[in-house]
Computed example of a mutant assay.
Amino acid sequence: MTFLLLVLWFQAPLALSAEDGGPESYLPIVPSLDKFAGNLFAQVAAEDPNKNVFLSSINIASALVLLALGAKGPTHREIFEGLSLDSSASPDAIYKGFQRLQQVMDQDRPSVALSTTNACFVDKTLNLLQEYQEKLKLFRSEAIAVDFTKPEEAKDQINCYVEEKTRGMIKDFVDSVDPDTVLTIISIIHFKGTWVDVFDKKQTRFQDFYVDESTAVKVPMMSRTGSYPVAFLNNEGCKVVEVPYKGNFSAVFIIPDKGKMQDVEEAIGQGSLTTWMKKLRPMRIKLEIPKFSVSTLIDLKEVLEKLGIKTAFTNSADLSGIAESGELKVSKVVHKAEITVDEEGTEAAAVTGIQIMPTILPPVVRVDAPFLIFIIDTNTNVQLFTGRIRNPLE
């Protein structure tokens, strides 16, 4: 068996083709993506309850769809079932749905930087099937020749590509390359948003963030008083606040009550986020959230196996739709994601606002203990990123 290395790095949905399946063809796959996001996050979060988690489920789903393009039989079926995709729907309809979703998400939006890239690094010994190459073109995935028998050169080539496409944000992404690798699929997403209402840096103060009952760390806490969609979900044991970006994106913060993190995570895994979002109502509050930067690197092989994607990792894998040799299997699935939350926005400096303050002080929503964060494209209701921040300083 020859090894197929699938490297997943943040990525948005798949790219546009000339035949995108109609303006609303992506809608049937959105509930599936939402379910997959919940299942994936629940599995990753349960691996180590005391660590930060940050990932892009749409990135992982999209890269797996690239893999599914060349999969057949049980291997293909497991990928689709693991992604919670409708087994009764035709693969072509699903692929067109991903393509159309990419088109909608890739529309130019003011004050938002959203870039996506797909690439296949192909060993010189591997002859990709023409049909698979044509499918990759539909998803704007470029094929790049590489010699994996020279692992250091291959590693440098991949790392230089990732560094360039992420504008220098990610360096030395791949630390080693197995010389038996014949194909590496790289998927990238980079997002930078501008708050609709920016935070005044002068209001940022160092405050305690309670990592657990016995540990507190000092973090720069941003503060702003204004109107935000909020839900106080007493029965569910959490508060939810939506902080909008310009360009139809939002960061959704979920603040579990003391001792309720696991319950809230399990509810998220069962799809409660959509229900909770419907309960949001505009309210004037004093919002305090930490300024932080978090990076996580996740080996997803065991997680995906728990979601039912198993055969692709075995000698029984059928990836015969990729190359003439046909004897391929997935050896590794790695996902890296980073997030930075701060006061700034690209258009913030020129904005002046005058607000009339009520005489009654607004309620305070303070994020000073472990919390969940979701970045959502409100045009499509698709989750771009999902995270659990246990310690903003790690």
Rank of each mutant, 00 (worst) to 15 (best):
10 F>V: 12
52 N>W: 12
364 V>H: 04
48 D>E: 13
169 M>G: 11
291 K>E: 13
243 V>H: 01
56 S>Q: 05
361 L>D: 09
289 I>F: 00
147 D>V: 15
149 T>N: 15
308 G>L: 03
176 S>M: 12
14 L>M: 07
109 R>L: 04
45 A>K: 01
176 S>C: 12
13 P>F: 13
338 E>H: 12
203 Q>P: 10
293 S>D: 05
177 V>F: 10
376 I>K: 04
150 K>A: 06
128 L>D: 02
285 I>D: 01
236 E>M: 08
136 L>E: 00
188 I>G: 02
145 A>G: 12
245 Y>L: 13
297 L>R: 06
10 F>R: 01
139 F>G: 02
143 A>K: 13
257 D>K: 14
357 M>K: 09
22 G>N: 08
370 P>V: 04
93 A>W: 13
249 F>A: 03
244 P>L: 09
287 L>C: 07
339 I>G: 01
16 L>D: 09
20 D>T: 13
241 V>Q: 01
87 S>V: 15
122 V>D: 07
16 L>R: 14
262 Q>E: 14
208 D>K: 08
78 E>C: 13
267 A>D: 15
134 E>H: 13
158 I>F: 07
191 F>M: 05
128 L>F: 08
376 I>E: 02
26 Y>D: 06
159 N>K: 06
38 G>R: 00
365 V>Q: 05
97 G>V: 05
129 L>H: 15
342 D>Y: 04
303 V>S: 04
384 L>I: 08
83 L>K: 09
65 V>D: 01
70 G>K: 05
65 V>Y: 03
97 G>P: 15
323 A>Y: 11
196 V>F: 03
168 G>T: 11
254 I>M: 11
358 P>N: 12
197 D>R: 00
102 Q>N: 11
150 K>M: 13
153 E>T: 15
23 P>Y: 06
218 K>L: 11
33 L>R: 02
5 L>Y: 12
362 P>D: 05
371 F>V: 00
44 V>Y: 02
239 K>L: 07
71 A>R: 14
83 L>G: 01
82 G>Q: 02
315 N>Y: 07
93 A>C: 03
91 P>I: 15
345 G>P: 03
328 L>E: 04
228 Y>V: 08
76 H>E: 06
45 A>Q: 02
340 T>V: 10
295 S>Q: 10
182 V>W: 01
351 V>Y: 10
243 V>L: 11
343 E>S: 10
115 S>K: 03
140 R>L: 10
180 D>M: 14
238 C>A: 13
218 K>R: 11
121 F>Q: 02
361 L>G: 03
26 Y>Q: 06
279 K>C: 14
334 V>Q: 04
50 N>L: 13
155 K>L: 11
18 A>V: 14
52 N>L: 11
220 P>R: 14
294 V>W: 00
276 W>A: 10
58 I>F: 04
79 I>G: 00
125 T>G: 15
102 Q>M: 15
322 I>Y: 08
95 Y>I: 09
46 A>M: 08
207 Q>H: 10
131 E>Y: 07
269 G>E: 01
19 E>Y: 11
215 T>H: 12
169 M>P: 02
369 A>F: 11
375 I>T: 05
305 E>S: 04
167 R>M: 06
255 I>L: 08
239 K>C: 10
239 K>W: 06
253 F>N: 00
214 S>P: 02
350 A>W: 15
172 D>L: 12
42 A>K: 06
144 I>C: 05
